[in-house]
């Protein structure tokens, strides 16, 4: 078991003929993900890594019945691609694209919710269920199947923690990157809910960073609703206030969003917070031994 993606995932790639889209399609196919179709307007009849390309999502859906879509490509076109996927009944859409204006994402978020679909991202690395399906841009080889569910706002920092877990013999049920933008489709709480229900997940790792208060919301949810052990790490203890640290959402503003507040909230909720990424596996092992 796992969450959101597995061996039964039938993936559609929107923007498949672009530089990123074609490269990552190749990578996902090599990992073993079932990539059933791609869409690029005007690309009908082409193939990328053996995957057939269609002009529209409607055609791709009719021909190949995908149940998940992943979007690569420029910020100008990404919201439109999300609408196209959702309007064609795809229940789970992953958006990798970085730099989508906030004003474009606010209606996208509301629309996806109203249609009962799920959006992961934007500005995220995607997700992976090791050994079954990789739907994103993470390096597959650092992952291993196992009992740890991981959820993160970051990309390379997630790889750092996954790598440490795998080296310590702790594989992952699913690793989910929710993205670093101010408006994202899937929150920590959404993923925690799924991990709590997933029988294959025995412990959860939550990786946060400065900005917003999603970690605080997650902490309240963990206290009230999560029975599995949770280990956390928060990046940005040394970040100054008022400066955006790379990610559009990573800014401490008006005294809120600081790492210390997030760490305190998580610790109050019984989460074991690591002071460095390399300390995560040991805390996970201890928490699982106690559980």
């Amino acid at each position: 078991m796992s969450i959101l993606v597995d061996a039964a995932t039938r993936l559609l790639v929107q923007g498949i003929t672009g530089r990123e889209g074609s490269f990552h399609t190749q990578q996902m196919v090599e990992y073993g993900t079932q990539v059933v179709a791609g869409v690029t307007p005007g690309g009908k009849g082409k193939e990328v890594a053996g995957v057939p390309v269609f002009d529209t999502v409607a055609e791709a859906v009719a021909a190949t019945r995908p149940n998940t879509s992943i979007i690569y490509g420029p910020a100008r076109f990404a919201p439109d691609a999300i609408y196209e996927a959702v309007d064609n009944g795809i229940p789970f859409v992953v958006c990798i694209t970085e730099g989508i204006p906030i004003a474009d994402m606010a209606p996208v978020y509301a629309y996806v919710k109203e249609k009962g679909a799920r959006l992961l991202g934007p500005n995220c690395p995607g997700l992976i269920t090791p050994g079954q399906a990789k739907v994103g841009i993470m390096p597959g080889f650092i992952h291993a199947p196992g009992p740890v569910g991981l959820v993160s706002r970051s990309g390379t920092l997630t790889y750092e923690v996954v790598d440490a877990l795998t080296r310590a013999g702790l594989g992952q049920s699913t690793a989910v990157g929710i993205g670093g933008d101010p408006i994202i489709g899937t929150s920590f709480v959404d993923v925690l809910t799924l991990f709590e229900e997933d029988p294959a997940t025995e412990a959860i790792v939550l990786i946060g960073e400065i900005g917003g208060n999603d970690e605080e919301t997650a902490a309240r949810f963990i206290r009230d609703r999560v029975s599995k052990p949770v280990v956390g790490f928060i990046a940005g203890r040394t970040a100054p206030a008022g400066k955006r640290m790379g990610h559009a959402g990573a800014i401490i503003s008006g005294g809120s969003g600081a790492a210390a507040d997030k760490i305190a909230a998580l610790e109050d909720a019984g989460v074991h917070v690591a002071d460095r990424p390399s300390a995560v596996p040991e805390l996970v092992a201890q928490a699982m031994a106690r559980a």
Binding site: S152, R153, S154, G155, T156, L157, T158, E160, G180, I207, E209, I210, F233, A235, G236, R237, T238, A239, P240, K243, R244, M245, G246, H247, A250, D275, R276, P277
Partner: peptide, 28 residues
Amino acid sequence: SFVKLDGDIGCIVNGAGLAMATMDAVKL
């Protein structure tokens, strides 16, 4: 993405989250 800080260890990192974690590690 670059933000100037007051210390003396220059950091070059790939990824925003890892870059913050690296700053934190220096401090640690």
